[in-house]
C-alpha cells in the first residue's frame, strides 16, 4: 500500500487538521471530529447535519457552508461516525429551530445517528432524520438492509440546504429531503478496488479486463463481475438499471451527476457524461442541471457512479440557490 499519509491510525486527524488549515471559513473540531460553519447558528434556521465514514471526500465536509450543510461528522475511514459526534454537532449548530440528520442508509450509519438523535432529544433538541437510499444496485427487500445511500446525498444536501437557508421549518425541510431522495437513483461501476489505509490492501482483486458492476462506495464487491466494455456499453447498462427502476418520460427534467469514485480522470468522466446525455436525449429527457467530477468517492477506487434525479421546479430553483462550500460553490 502506498499512500500520502503518516500512519493509518492518524489519517483522519491529520486530514481534519489540514481541512482546518485550508478553510478558515470552517470551524473544525479536530478532536471532536465535527466540521461546522464558523460563526455558529443563525436564529430561526433549521440546522442540516450529515456525516458518515471518511474516504468519500469531498462528502460531507466539503459541503459544509452557506446554502448547504451546517455541520458534518466524519467517521473513521469507511466507518460511520459515533453518536457523540452528531450530538456535539447538533449542540453546536441548533438554533432552536431543530436539526435535520441526513443519513445514508447503512446499518452502522442508521444505528449511530439513531443513538445520537436519542441523546439530542434528551437535550431538548428536536431532530428529524431522513435516510438516503438511492443505489438501485441493491434491491430494497427483506433480503437486504435496503438500498445504499450514495450519490443522491449530494442532491439532498444541496437542495435541502437551500430550503433551510430560506427559513423553512423542520418538517418542510425533512419533507423536501424525502422528495429529493425518492426522485433520485444511482448506479456505479468500479474498474479497480480501493485500499483502505487500515486494511493495507485492495478490498478485492480485479483482473485487468474486468469490472465490478453495481458497487457501493466502501470498497465492497459489487453485484456482478463483467468484462470491461466501451464507455457507451457500460453507460447503457447503468442507465438501463436506473431507468428500469424509475422510468422517465419525454419532457421530464433531471439533475444528473457523473461522479468519479476517486481515481478516475476527469476526461473519462466527461466521456461518460457524453454517453449519459445521449441516452437521455434519445428519450427526450432534459438534463436541466449537471455535475461532473469527484463528489462522492471511494478512496482510490477507479470507477464512476451515475445519479439521476427527476427534478421538479422547486428542486431546480433550490438547486440554483447560492451555495458556498469548498466543493460546491455558485452564486456566492
Amino acid at each position: 500500500m502506498k499512500k500520502l499519509i503518516n500512519t493509518p491510525e492518524s489519517v483522519l486527524d491529520d486530514a481534519l487538521a489540514g481541512i482546518a488549515a485550508a478553510h478558515p471559513e470552517l470551524a473544525v473540531d479536530v478532536e471532536g471530529r465535527v466540521i461546522a460553519r464558523a460563526g455558529g447558528p443563525r436564529p430561526g434556521k433549521v440546522a442540516v447535519i450529515s456525516g458518515g465514514g471518511s474516504g468519500h471526500e469531498p462528502l460531507h465536509g466539503g459541503f459544509v457552508g452557506p446554502g448547504m450543510l451546517n455541520a458534518a461528522c466524519p467517521g473513521e475511514v469507511f466507518t460511520s461516525p459515533v453518536p457523540d459526534q452528531m450530538l456535539s454537532a447538533a449542540k453546536a449548530v441548533d438554533s432552536g429551530a431543530g436539526v435535520l440528520f441526513i443519513v445514508k442508509n447503512y446499518t452502522g450509519d442508521r444505528l449511530n445517528f439513531q443513538m445520537a438523535a436519542e441523546l439530542a432529544e434528551d437535550e431538548d433538541i428536536t431532530v428529524e432524520t431522513v435516510l438516503v437510499d438511492d443505489d438501485v444496485a441493491v434491491r430494497d427487500s427483506t433480503w437486504t438492509a435496503g438500498r445504499r445511500g450514495t450519490g443522491a446525498t449530494v442532491f439532498v444536501e444541496k437542495i435541502v440546504g437551500a430550503l433551510a437557508e430560506q427559513g423553512a421549518d423542520l418538517t418542510t425541510v425533512a419533507e423536501m429531503a424525502k422528495r429529493v431522495n425518492a426522485a433520485s437513483r444511482s448506479f456505479a461501476v468500479a474498474l479497480t478496488a480501493c485500499t483502505a489505509p487500515a486494511a493495507g490492501k485492495p478490498g478485492f482483486d480485479l483482473p485487468d479486463d474486468e469490472i465490478e458492476v453495481g458497487v457501493g462506495i466502501h470498497g465492497e464487491p459489487g453485484r456482478s463481475r463483467e468484462k470491461i466494455r466501451s464507455a457507451k456499453d457500460i453507460v447503457a447498462s447503468c442507465m438501463d438499471a436506473l431507468l428500469d427502476d424509475q422510468p422517465l418520460a419525454a419532457g421530464e427534467e433531471t439533475i444528473v451527476m457523473v461522479n468519479g469514485l476517486g481515481a478516475t480522470p476527469l476526461i473519462e468522466l466527461y466521456v461518460v457524461f457524453n454517453e449519459v446525455a445521449a441516452v437521455l436525449a434519445a428519450k427526450d429527457v432534459t438534463i436541466a442541471r449537471s455535475l461532473v467530477g469527484n463528489y462522492v468517492t471511494s478512496l482510490d477506487m477507479a470507477g464512476v457512479s451515475i445519479t439521476v434525479c427527476r427534478a421538479d421546479a422547486d428542486m431546480l430553483s433550490l438547486w440554483d440557490a447560492p451555495v458556498n462550500t469548498s466543493a460546491l460553490r455558485w452564486g456566492a
Binding site: G53, E76, V82, G108
Partner: peptide, 12 residues
C-alpha cells in the same frame, strides 16, 4: 464501544 467504534458493530 458506542462512543469509540462507530459502524454497525459499535452500537450493536
Amino acid at each position: 464501544l458506542i462512543r469509540r467504534v462507530g459502524g454497525a458493530s459499535g452500537p450493536l
